[in-house]
Amino acid sequence: MKSGSNLEKVIKSGQPAVTAELGPPMSADAHEVIKKANQLKGFCDAANITDCQTAVVRISSIAAAYIALREGLEPVMQMTCRDRNRIAMQADFLGAAALGLKNCLCIAGDHQSFSAAGRLKGHPGAKNVYDVDTCQLVGIMKKMRDEGLQQGGDKLEVAPKFFIGASWTPMGDPIDFRPYNLKKKVDAGADFIQTQGIYDMELFKVQMEKARNLGLHERTAVLAGIIVPKSAMMLKYMDSSVAGVSVPKELIQRMLKAKDAAGDDKKKAKELQEQEGMKITVELIQQALEIPGIKGVHVQAIEWESAIEHIVKAAGLYPRPDFSE
């Protein structure tokens, strides 16, 4: 075992893995994390603790991950290249490992310009770091774990043992290059991959086939990303504005139909769409798991962690395997 994390064990066991996502709050209130951790606990093998996603200041990933861990939920800490240089990153790995964290997802991070959105002022004037990029960060972690060396070459008495993850946007531009993009992350040392949210399963299958042709499915565990749709509006927005995401028309139609069925009743419309969204999610999970080389799913119910229980059960993925001794 590389890290001995629960997620690593599930994947190694050959059973489809399920990861979820926990977004820490924009406040120093640990209860929000505790609440969400308990909603997810038992319904996933590990939960990603986002690292100031959309560049918005929140409880740090490591701190929130530690709280989740205390609550009995295995966290996947996230680390963006946006906010730390290699010194801070490696220091945080040592600290996180010392706290008992075992999974880490390496990502570039949303640009700080994203932070000023909606009612938020954010910090678009922040200076970003990008000392290293995702591939390089993956490489640094691997070097620390496997060689016991810092990036600079200094020796580590006790190496941090992480199960290393990276993200992948399989359908992003330039689409031909995306399988190679994955390959680079795998070459750098990514043990598992969580993809960008997928709605267009047919296109994903094509990209997965290319990844298989490169032999990548044997070297890493690809978990298909599924973002739980909440409304027709959300799907439309994702389709038009989110990089690397395209939503088939039928799915949008289904959500619209659900919405229309409620007539003028807004509350009902919300409910019906949420129900339809969960239904779609379950279908997508099942389709994804049938794709050769897919080792699990990464289900993101953004600010809707309570939905995971129902989805996982409906998808027939409950109960989750238990490797606790």
Binding site: A108, C135, Q136, T169, G172, D173, K184, V242, A243
Partner: peptide, 9 residues
Amino acid sequence: MNGPCGGTN
């Protein structure tokens, strides 16, 4: 140095 990231649209 190892782009693109997922933000290419």
